[in-house]
Structure formats: C-alpha cells, structure tokens
Design a protein around this nucleic acid. Structure first.
Lengths: 228, 228
DNA sequence: AGGGTATGACCTTCCGGTAATTTACCTCTG
DNA sequence: CAGAGGTAAATTACCGGAAGGTCATACCCT
C-alpha cells in the first residue's frame, strides 16, 4: 500500500535486501514521521468510521489499511474514542469553514440571493468531501449510543453545521408566515438529511466528480421547486 | 437475572390454573406460544437493529429485551442474519403495501394529482412506522458490508420501495424535459433519503404523532416549493 | 410418554488495549 | 571520524471481555 518513505533528507539506501541477522522481519524500519503517519491514520479512520459506523469499525482494520499495526494507533491517538474524536474534529472543522465561506462570500453588498444559497453550500460540501466522501457519515453517525460521550461530541460538532443550516432554512419559513419553532427544527434536519442523501448517492457513483454533483444537484433542486 | 424457573415477565396468567383451553389451534403448551414469541422477538429485533445497525446490535441484548435467553432466538430464527432477514421482510412488506396503497388509491379516473402524491406517501409511511419508527433504518442500514448476502438482501427489498419512488419522481423530471437517467436515479435516492431524514427527526421527537408529522411535512414541502 | 417451550453452561473468535522489545537515525562527545 | 547514548518509530506477544453460536437438559402441558 504505502511504499512511500523517504521522510528525511537522508533516505535509507534502497539498494539491497539488507536484513539484520536474527531480527524480526522489518520491525521498526519504516521511519515515517509522526505527522505524516497521523495524517495517514486519520484518513483511513475517517473512511472506516464513515463506512461502518463507530461501533462496527475496527482498530486492526484501520491499522491494516495504513500498513502498520495496532499499537501505533494507540501511541498516537490513545484509544479508539480518541481516534474517533480526532476524525470528528478534522472533518467538522473543514466542513464548517467551507459552508461558512459559501454562505457569506460577498462582504460588500447584501449576501447572495436566498435561492442561490443551497447550491453554493452543496458545492462547498462536495468540494471538501471529494476525496473522502464517507467523512460526512462520521459526523452523522446514527449508531452512536445516546448518552455516551461520543454521542455528545458528535452532536456538538454537528451543532455548528446545523446552526448554519438553521440560519438558511429559517428564512424560507419566515417568508411563509410560519413561525413554528418545531417546523424550523424539522426543516433544518431535513436539509442536513438531504445533504447526507446526496452524499450517499455520490458514494455509490464514484466516477462522478464534485463539479458534476454540484451541477446535477442544481438541476434537481430546480426541478423540485418548479410547478408540475 | 432469572435464576430460577420464574414465569416470564409478560406471562398473562399468574392467577391460578387459568389456561386457555383449546383456544388456539395447537395451543396448550406451557410457555408463550411460538407465534407470539416470534412476534415479540421480531419487534425487539427491529428496534435494536434499527437503532444500532446490524453489526452493532447484539443477540443477547435483543433476548434480554424480550425477557428470554439467546438460545431461543437461535431455535426460532437460526442465526443473527436469519433474524435480520426476518425483520427485513416484515418491515419491507408492510411499507411496500402501504406506499402502493397511497400511490394508486383511485382506480377509476386518473391517479391523484402528482403534487399530492408525496404527502400521501409520507402519511402512509408514518402510519406504518408509528409504533416502530426505527424500523425504517433496518431497511436503510448504511453499515451493511457491501458484497455481503445481507447487503444484497436489504438492497433487494429496498428496490421495491425505490421502484415506487422512481415512478413518482420520474414524472417530475420528465415535466422539465430532463431525461438524464442518472438525474432520475439521484432524485429517487434523494426522495428516500428525505423520508429517512424525516423519520430520523420524528425519532428524536417521540411525542409527535403520525398525524402531526403528516401535517408538518405537508407544510414543509409546500414551503420548499414556494418561491422565495 | 411425548412434544413444544425454554435455559445454563460452554466454546471459539474477535476486539480494544497494554507491555516489552527491536530497529534506525541523530547527536554529542573524545 | 568513531563510537556511545538518546530518541523516535514500530513491532510481536499477550490479556480480559464480549459476542455469535451450540449442546444437553429442565419444565410443563396434553
């Protein structure tokens, strides 16, 4: 998988199969710097957690994917929950930044027209998720046990995104004279669920680029809103 | 827990030798009749599988919920996968019947106006799920390993519902002159994902009745479609 | 006695987590 | 410039517990 090495300027000579006598085969010889390994592990963990959910994901499987062994994950991230939290923060931060950028891109003058916001947000999300589409479902992991620390943490990180969604969806209802707070909450949930559904479709169509997804979703949103 | 014999918690006849005589065909055994037990187990399993996903759900937990022990589940359903498949068929059958009923209720004359179909379908789904809201996520379990028998089975059962969704969404796009089959597939997925998102919100608001959900969703769908 | 209902004890496998150890590199001395 | 020593990077081997699954057995009614 990862044959890449050569972190330091002095790359170990790849000349021959020089192996030490009496030693375990290839123990401690990788020498990948910690920062790079952590990034690799994080990427593998995001994919694994996103695909199977926290409970079903296995540390050994993540380690195998990276090409290392379990104890390394524990020395770097402490525990399974620690690794999960790291994934959570990583992906939440990237998504929040991207969505914030998509919702207020025009500091001079009024913000973008309300009806243009959803496609912009989708474009931003797809751009962030292009190389890690499963990441969305790390944040929106339905299998976390309610009441657990992990559930609270995921909920807290979702709240940032949900807040942005709420500020966008509230206008829609206000324009209708609807002030029911439960309607607003449900519509917010509906929006994030819609994004999740679209990401789910994207995962099952890997050949689609982020740009293609953005264009397709613009068509679909328009079609839904058109009278028929 | 139940160390000694101890009648099961739900045994309905603690008052003397009052046993149902010849009441049911083949009845008369000491414990709960098999059909009733199977129904209890199925209900508990649907909730457990729906809440945690197939992999994270535990047989022992389901058994504990019913008030029996693990071997009984295996006697009646063979294996964890067998129980899961039984849940799948149970819920899929009920949902398909209900949705079919909602989509062609008027055999004489044309079908219901296209714009009235989604609320009707939602009403039917909410009615089926009223007492088992988690059941939706047994069918739409994202954590099933792709390529496994379970994944294929769930996909096959979903296909029935997805087919109904497709027949409803295809009209929307045709009305726009859009004939892209991928757009149609994505819109179908978007619709089922929307239903899932609404069910997810419903689960987090247990006090809401199916009728209230139906009314709320009608408001929300109208709000989305209105110009703003 | 016989048959449907139900259980306790047990087996194997996998998973999260830890301890001890090995390898490779860098640097500081003499 | 050689070797001593420190340190970062990784490994093998192992443990306790939980989960899927099985077997022989007990209960209770007809």
């Amino acid at each position: 998988m990862n044959t890449a090495r050569g972190s330091s300027p002095a790359t170990p000579s790849p000349s021959g199969p020089r192996r030490t006598p009496t030693a375990a085969p290839g123990a401690g010889t990788k020498g990948v710097p910690r920062a790079r390994r952590e990034a690799q592990i994080l990427a593998a963990a995001v994919e694994e957690f996103g695909r199977h959910g926290h409970a079903s994901a296995s540390m050994a499987s993540i380690a195998r994917r990276v090409g290392v062994t379990k104890p390394l994950l524990y020395t770097y991230f402490g525990s399974k929950d620690g690794l999960y939290l790291a994934c959570l923060e990583h992906i939440a931060h990237r998504l929040v930044s991207a969505i914030e950028g998509a919702m207020e891109p025009d500091p001079h003058g009024a913000g973008p027209a309300a009806s243009r916001v959803p496609p912009r947000v989708l474009a931003a999300v797809f751009d962030v998720l292009e190389e890690q589409r499963e990441a969305w479902f790390v944040l929106y992991d339905r299998t976390l046990k309610p009441g657990s620390d992990l559930h609270r943490a995921a909920h807290a990180h979702r709240a940032a995104i949900d807040g942005l969604a709420a500020s966008g969806t509230a206008d829609v209802l206000r324009g209708q004279g609807n002030q029911d707070p439960l309607d607003a909450d449900a519509l917010k949930h509906l929006w994030t669920g819609t994004v999740g559904a679209l990401v789910g479709w994207w995962i099952s169509h890997p050949e689609q680029s982020a740009a293609e997804m953005t264009a397709r979703c613009a068509r679909l949103l328009a079609a839904i809103r058109a009278p028929h």
